[in-house]
Amino acid sequence: MVIEKSVLAIITTNKEKVNGGAPIFICQDFEELQKTAANLEAILDGIAHALSEEVFIIVKH
């Protein structure tokens, strides 16, 4: 089976909200979260999606 979409990384400022199999990056504030997400987006060739102000995910489409 080929998995077409997958969550490559989770970036959050609230570690209570996340758990699970993908790598999780915990940031201090929204600014750091944005920078980390932008970097990871470029590195992983994925798209940074916002689930909320506190949780971003990088998804490979």
């Binding site: 944005q34 997400a37 987006e41 995910i57």
Partner: peptide, 20 residues
């Protein structure tokens, strides 16, 4: 609308980063 990109009322995709 939030992180959702729309053309008219049609949802296109979710873009998280403000600079994007």
């Amino acid at each position: 609308d939030g992180a959702g990109l729309y053309v008219d009322n049609i949802y296109i995709m979710n873009i998280g980063l403000p600079e994007r």
